[in-house]
């Protein structure tokens, strides 16, 4: 029974990591850049919920998603678009700069101390001796639905297929009449929407928010994306869930618990040694 609780917990946490990892992986696949400000979108999403929570929780969630989409697009337009074609290092540094900018701005506006954001007191499901919070269960259920929806979107819609086309070969896609800028913008919008939802579900599990809130899940999700194979959508999902389950299983064993993070990152190293492109990453043949 205890192991089942650990597993449900792990899958739920993994669902959150997967949602964030999808943002990393899609942006990498399509714009070929590592958007290190992605984790901070989660934090912004959390604060956006906080601002409108007193009005109406549903409205707050909708506002948060819209605000994050807007922010994602604005960041892309203002910070990354002018650098298209610049060296990857310049883009990387800019992303880190955007990350610090968002964190500092949040600290100036909301202060450094953590704020509690209680969207709804959902309580816990009690089965005999054990109990598990509804927040965890809802997160798990929603993340499954979201991942299925995203997969269908990419596979079945015209925009989705255009996204795959851009990630496979940008120039060929352009020649086929795909508007690259438009696709990149949509990618950022979807990534940011997923990040804001990840923020929402994190708040259901842990109802606190602070300016550096997005940093750790951001790094973990990035790790998940690399483990799964960066650029691969199913890879991000697999990596996220794997990492979430490993984290919870490690934390449930007292003697192993202090080394949880070391183990998580060790898995990354091992996988990169065995399969440098990640579990589901595609091997690209380099033309010389």
């Amino acid at each position: 029974m205890d192991f089942l609780i650990t597993l449900v917990n792990g899958l739920s946490l993994g669902g959150i990591y997967a949602m964030i990892a999808l943002g990393y992986t899609m942006v990498y696949g399509i714009a070929k850049m590592l958007n290190f400000a992605h984790g901070d979108i989660i934090m912004v999403g959390g604060y956006a919920i906080l601002v409108f929570l007193s009005v109406n929780p549903i409205l707050a969630i909708v506002f948060s998603v819209l605000f994050c989409i807007g922010l994602g697009i604005a960041v892309e337009k203002a910070a990354y678009k002018p650098l298209r074609g610049a060296s990857p290092l310049a883009v990387l540094i800019t992303a880190i700069g955007v990350s610090y900018f968002l964190q500092s701005l949040a600290q100036i506006i909301f202060g450094a101390s953590p704020k509690y954001v209680i969207i709804a007191d959902l309580g816990s499901l009690v089965i005999g001796e054990v109990s598990i919070s509804y927040g965890t269960i809802i997160t798990l259920a929603c993340s499954i639905v979201i991942m299925i929806a995203l997969t269908l979107f990419v596979k079945l819609t015209k925009t989705g297929r255009a996204m795959i086309a851009v990630s496979e070969d940008k120039d060929a896609a352009r020649l086929m009449g795909v508007n690259i800028d438009h696709i990149i913008m949509i990618t950022f919008a979807i990534g940011s929407a997923l990040a804001s939802l990840a923020g929402l579900f994190s708040l259901l599990r842990v109802p606190t928010i602070m300016p550096t809130y997005g940093a750790l899940p951001g790094i973990k999700a990035f790790t998940a994306a690399v483990i799964g194979g960066i650029g691969s959508i199913p890879g991000a999902m697999l990596g996220g869930i794997l990492l979430g389950v490993v984290e919870c299983v490690c934390n449930s064993i007292p003697t192993v618990a202090p080394y949880t993070m070391a183990i998580e990152f060790a898995i990354l190293i091992v996988i990169l040694l065995v399969k440098p492109t990640g579990i589901l990453g595609k091997k690209r043949r380099e033309k010389v």
């Binding site: 205890d2 609780i5 650990t6 917990n9 792990g10 739920s12 946490l13 054990v130 598990i132 919070s133 965890t136 994190s202 599990r205 842990v206 606190t208 550096t212 809130y213 940093a215 750790l216 984290e247 919870c248 934390n251 449930s252 007292p254 618990a257 202090p258 949880t260 993070m261």
Partner: peptide
């Protein structure tokens, strides 16, 4: 004594509370 722990800026303790229940 039964011990549970965390690291860095971790904030999700849904697993740790199970260890100390």
């Amino acid at each position: 004594i039964v011990k549970a722990s965390f690291k860095g800026e971790e904030s999700d303790f849904n697993q740790q509370v199970q260890a100390l229940k």
